[in-house]
């Protein structure tokens, strides 16, 4: 059975093995690792496997993309920045236009004495409900964005 002390030295041994493989181990730590390896055949086996993995991964690298992508890279980023401004302007303007049209429509409807009252109230209810929903969703999004500690990691 693995005790807490047992898992403690194992964890330490794992970290020492990683540091040794990656060339980030101090002479003292190296001696400590050598002692642990000498005393534990299971750990030695683990160490050999890790060495094989390191040997294979050391011989691999990222594939280089075609050189043209670097030449066009900034142009593409620039276009995206411009498009972002375009989307923002269009969205804001659309919200203003839609709000103004809705206001005009509701005002005209209430001025129309031939329209039944229940229809006026129904349209008013739909408009009020839509506003409440929009404000509620926007407030929730804003609140989550400000409070979520992992907002930079997972959307």
């Amino acid at each position: 059975m693995t005790t807490r002390d047992d898992s403690g030295w194992r964890e330490e041994a794992r970290r020492l093995m990683m540091a040794a493989l990656d060339g980030e181990i101090s002479p003292d730590q190296r001696r400590q690792l050598d002692r642990l390896l000498a005393d534990n055949p299971e750990l030695r086996e683990d160490w050999e496997r890790m060495g094989q993995v390191k040997e294979v991964t050391r011989s691999m690298s990222y594939r280089e993309p075609p050189e043209e992508i670097w030449q066009e890279y900034w142009v593409s980023v620039y276009s995206r920045c411009e498009r972002g401004v375009g989307w923002l302007l269009m969205t804001l303007s659309a919200v203003v236009l839609l709000s103004w049209s809705a206001w005009q429509g509701i005002a005209a409807m209430f001025a129309d004495s031939t329209m039944p009252l229940f229809l006026k109230l129904a349209v008013l209810g739909v408009a009020t409900g839509a506003i409440i929903l929009l404000v509620s969703v926007a407030r929730e999004k804003w609140f989550v964005r400000r409070k979520d500690p992992y907002r930079e990691v997972i959307r």
Binding site: R15, A19, T57
Partner: peptide
Amino acid sequence: VMSRLYTARKHLA
């Protein structure tokens, strides 16, 4: 970092 590296390499091993 070292623990995650160990776990990753263990999978590869």
